[in-house]
Design a protein around this nucleic acid. Structure first.
Lengths: 213, 213
DNA sequence: ATCCTTCCCTAACAAGTGTTTGGTAGGTTA
DNA sequence: TAACCTACCAAACACTTGTTAGGGAAGGAT
């Protein structure tokens, strides 16, 4: 296990040099292209094109293509865990915790949809790389939070006991995060509205329940 | 719309030359590597290594790397639609149709987990390519079948009417297919058992329903 | 014995890849 | 004016990529 409950997700110290706004711009366009084409299928020349500069110029801002990916993912995970930790520290009941986590997740998808899409597609290959070891740490912490909450809910009678909890965990987890593949900000539904409907389906199902007379 | 109900998914005519068993072997290992590393991140040399031959030797069996991907995906879709069409032609009610489709889907994941994983990761970029136009056709037919069944279920009172049907469609669809990312054949649960639990969650939810006295 | 088919190897090619090096225009500071 | 910093360009480098051409070994068919 980990030495304490707080797993360090990112090693970045966020040294905000004045006017690193350009970095963020470039990272945003890079994230957009990575999400659309896939990391490996994206060339640095394509990113540079999209940014209106030449490929070599990117290396004034970043060490490598990989470090761009690194910054995109760790920045996302930092924000994600800021939100999650706040929810988990609120001391809510199991059902309310799940509701809050799902809602928070859809808000993160709304804000970081490119990063989420990249994470979904690439994280599996990246975990093995030492540089991206924090992805594995995040996944462990993630599972601990969600699975723990579900088990707590089964124990106190909020959730069904006749289901495989690990299966239910993957069910809820995937259900939420794949939404990033089709979600477009500024669409018909707000993140909160989508969360509400998803929670309704996950918690109560899509079938009509037998009426009580 | 399409001219008739039957959308041609694959153009392959499956000319079974005697002893093309080697082709299938190589396609299987290629699919495995594609699924593990991603299509673009996979080199033909890696595939050849895994097969115990040299990179150039692959081109005795296949025209190109892309044609391997093509064969893998279209072979999978052919089998998938064989199963789906049988279900859809059975004339079941909406709920029973959904149950049968979900079960059939998990069986396909069991048999073609590599192809499914590849499809999930790469189909979005491939659809635009003319060669992979059949992916778009398959997606349209897929949506027609699932969304239509859900709407039928809402109309006849089997499914809840207070939900956005398109959202429910994506919910059910994603819920089923992302399972390919963690499913391993020969695991603790059979495809049918996983389908049963998934259906239980999707239809009735994971929350304990208020008891009637 | 000869031919043909199947399957693979050796060796290379051209294009595309991430990255580096040195330079420069423009603005800010001393 | 001089030094300096930021943000970029121009041009190339080393390497990897998918792919091809020609050849050859094994084995069955004729």
């Amino acid at each position: 296990m980990t030495d304490n409950g707080t797993v360090p997700i990112s090693k970045k110290t966020t040294t905000k040099t004045p006017a690193d706004g350009r970095r963020r711009e470039l990272l945003a366009t890079a994230a957009e292209v990575f999400a659309a084409q896939g990391y490996n299928a994206t060339t640095v020349r394509r990113i540079a094109d999209e940014a209106g500069i030449l490929a070599g110029s990117l290396y004034y801002h970043f060490d490598s293509k990989e470090s761009m990916l690194d910054e995109i993912l760790s920045a996302f995970l930092d924000e994600l865990w800021a939100g999650y930790d706040a929810v988990l520290a609120a001391g809510l009941g199991p059902r309310e915790t799940i509701e809050a986590l799902v809602t928070e997740s859809f808000r993160e998808i709304d804000r970081h949809r490119a990063a989420v899409a990249i994470y979904q597609k690439e994280s599996r290959h990246l975990v093995d790389q030492p540089r991206f070891a924090y992805l594995a740490a995040s996944q462990r912490k993630f599972e601990k939070a969600w699975l723990g909450t579900l088990e707590r809910g089964v124990a106190d009678g909020a959730f069904r006991a006749d289901l495989d909890v690990r299966l239910a965990y993957r069910f809820v987890r995937d259900t939420v995060w794949v939404a990033a593949s089709w979600y477009r900000p500024g669409g018909a539904h707000s993140p909160e509205e989508i969360a509400r409907q998803y929670l309704s389906m996950v918690l109560d199902g899509i079938a009509v329940r037998p009426q009580e007379p």
